[in-house]
């Protein structure tokens, strides 16, 4: 009985986690087997990324949302690892970080906008 409760609890957690990461992000392709370690969000507002630094466990997915009236392009400093399309107002972009490290990124068209993701 204890075991059944535990499985039920786990299943509920899985469902909740899945809902949390996909419910509001139709662009994120996921099968039920993929459970992200966590999900984090970055808001683009007034030509800046907030928070400017976030720390996440490996396997986490970060979603950027553009709240400005101006398009922005979320781009890793190496211009290779990740690059969003031009995000218009309220557009979102998601990327999953699988390996630990510090990933600096910027806006490709407003390069004064810089921030980083620390993956543990």
């Amino acid at each position: 009985m204890k075991r059944i409760k535990w499985i039920f609890g786990l299943a509920a957690t899985v469902v909740a986690a899945f809902a949390l990461t996909t419910g509001t992000r139709p662009s994120l392709a996921m099968s039920p087997g993929d459970i992200p370690a966590s999900a984090a969000t970055v808001k683009i507002d007034n030509f800046s990324f907030g928070p400017a630094t976030i720390t996440i466990p490996a396997g986490s997915t970060v979603t950027w949302t553009n709240s400005d009236d101006v398009p922005h392009v979320v781009t890793s400093d190496d211009n290779k690892m990740f690059k969003s399309k031009a995000l218009d107002t309220d557009d979102r972009f998601s990327f999953t970080f699988t390996k630990p490290g510090t990933y600096n990124y910027y806006c490709a068209i407003h390069p004064k906008m810089v921030a980083k993701i620390v993956v543990q």
Binding site: D77, N104, Y105, P111, K112, V114
Partner: peptide, 10 residues
């Protein structure tokens, strides 16, 4: 002067 912009630059 709007392409290949570097992070942190102008």
């Amino acid at each position: 002067n709007v392409v290949d912009l570097k992070a942190g630059g102008l």
